[in-house]
Nucleic acid binder design. Structure first.
Lengths: 331, 331
DNA sequence: GTCCGTCATCGAAACGCTTCGACAACGACG
DNA sequence: CGTCGTTGTCGAAGCGTTTCGATGACGGAC
């Protein structure tokens, strides 16, 4: 293994000088800098991560806590992950994969061993038992999503409440008086997942405000379940003329299902989805965008800022954007 | 931060003794052991990962190289990931997430900085440019999948060639003389991905051997594409009475699509899938199992074995298992 | 011509752990 | 009863960085 001492010897300088060239923490003359750089290149030197972590008490690693469990729509999750990894790399950091099933214990271990400088936590439940722990840890953390108690933690989230409301408003403006809500798989609500609950709440409140009748049901990710939920909604509310879908896995089955139930989109039933734009685009659905990449990126940027000692706003809430497409043609 | 010296002081022993209690590399009297354990618990001590890595030249981390790109079916990928993480944890290792788009450069960086002790690489292409690098790296690696040249590397894979053949044999035994093959998205073949190519090859060869006519087409992950591919196959080979599907994302559309083309499963067209068992179970499809968890687990175990200096077989090839279900009822 | 501030560099001391040789204590053995 | 292995523990020397105080060299101000 080639060490910093080897580089220093080769370049005819002190090890500390090499270190300063690498980190840029002190000014170095251009000549020395390029001499050292050349030696580094020639010898193929890579600083030893462990040694670095030990000396600087910075691992240059963030832990990403991922929910690999039922009800999570993986393609969407991966958009977050990709954005996080890309942004991390841009700041010369790496990403340690921690699965949510390792629980608070896993967090404690990773934090205690100083394996990671910070934590990015996804799929937060409203009453999440990891939150108290995160709050008292030495390392900063950023949540993607929002628990009920946000005191003392930093969150990034889409304003799902507003998103739910935005869908209703759009439909109400088009004259719909009876709307349905096709939600995430029921386990997601059972877990009390923040974004799912909030969207529902926003949807419900907006319907009340606009004096519109509404029904809501969860749906699993298969055709039968989607069909069953929609059938049940139509039975409960035969006059239903619009549907809000907050379930990426179900999206593909919705219009086929409605057709099977004797309804055409958009003539009989208008559809608004809450999902990444690409999906809506492909299916030609009016949608509120779920900016996964943007959320992942911002979360990582916030974490980096905190690691650099900067003050950050405790809550970054992205405003929902609705894009009108063929599935809600004016009546 | 509480260090090993604190623990040693608290327990009234030397730091090295604490270390030996932790690693178990020398025998320690039961009394001392429990005394030290108690101090560790009381003080909430966690060894500093960096220090440990530096002193022992072992980071207790494996890098998992993930293909987060088009054509990869994420639910299946996540099965691998979950199995890898779980197995890693069982050996007290953590998992560093490296995305394939960081390329060979990323591997070099992680390896050079001794951030990881070994590499697990997924979604290997037949002529993968990372393979030469992996071969010459100080750290061992295990591939999930197989490049064309396997010399000097360790791979774990399902025998996809046999899997393709197994499907044909099953169908041939049932009397089918004209079969189709609905493959992965075309980008996957364009990339020359090992498992996709091999399955095709096995399928084709078996069809030849059994004197059966065959057609093959790729399919994307949407209904339209699946329908189009199947229509094209039926046009090319109107007598087609059986279909092998090697595309998890397409599975859900197959029987609906065939129905739309005027064919019923299994009476008009028999279907065999190559996919994780759960999917086949749910859709009641005869299938060759894709044991993702098993592959992930074995890959990690092999890597651990190599890290412990054990010799391992260069190729672990799992035999395909076919499970007969309703979609290939005897004619 | 002296003094002072800046700039570039050096040397040495951490950082927290593992590992290896050394060494008592102790029972077994001849 | 001396000797020899074993067992359990200690002390110290690394591991490869970063960081901080120190130090020359140099230029500008007086």
């Amino acid at each position: 293994m080639v060490t910093i001492a080897d580089v220093a010897r080769h370049a005819g300088v002190a090890p500390s000088t090499v270190s300063y060239v690498l980190t840029g923490k002190r000014s170095i003359s251009p000549q020395t800098r390029s001499k050292v750089r050349e030696s580094i290149r020639l010898l193929g030197y890579h600083p030893h991560a462990g040694a670095r972590a030990l000396a600087s008490s910075r691992a240059n690693v963030v832990a990403l806590v991922l929910p690999l469990r039922a009800g999570v729509h993986l393609p969407v999750l991966m958009r977050f992950v990709t954005a996080v990894v890309t942004t991390a790399r841009r700041h010369d950091m790496d990403v340690l994969l921690v699965t949510a099933d390792q629980g608070a214990e896993g967090l404690r271990r990773v934090a205690g061993s100083a394996q990671a400088d910070g934590f990015l936590v996804m799929d937060v439940e409203l009453d999440d038992d990891r939150v108290p722990l995160l709050r008292q840890m030495a390392q900063p953390s950023v949540l993607i999503g929002r628990p009920a108690a946000v005191k003392g933690i930093v969150c990034v989230d889409l304003d799902f409440e507003a998103a739910g409301a935005r869908c209703v408003d759009h439909l109400a403006d088009l004259g719909h008086r009876h709307v349905g809500f096709l939600g995430a798989p029921s386990v997601v609500y059972q877990r009390n997942t923040g974004y799912a609950q909030r969207t529902m709440a926003g949807f419900g409140a907006a319907a009340m405000r606009r004096g519109i009748a509404s029904t809501a049901l969860p749906a699993e990710d298969d055709y039968e379940s989607v069909l069953a939920s929609m059938r049940a909604m139509l039975r409960a509310q035969p006059a239903m003329t619009a549907l809000v879908v907050h379930n990426e896995a179900a999206l593909g089955w919705v219009s086929a299902g409605l057709r099977a139930l004797g309804r055409k989109v958009p003539d009989d039933v208008a559809v608004v989805a809450i999902c990444p734009d690409e999906y809506a685009e492909q299916l030609q659905l009016t949608s509120v965008q779920l900016p996964a990449e943007e959320l992942g990126r911002q979360a990582m940027e916030l974490l980096v800022a905190r690691l650099n000692g900067q003050q950050t706003p405790p809550l970054t809430l992205l405003a929902p954007k609705l894009l009108s497409r063929a599935s809600t043609a004016p009546r």
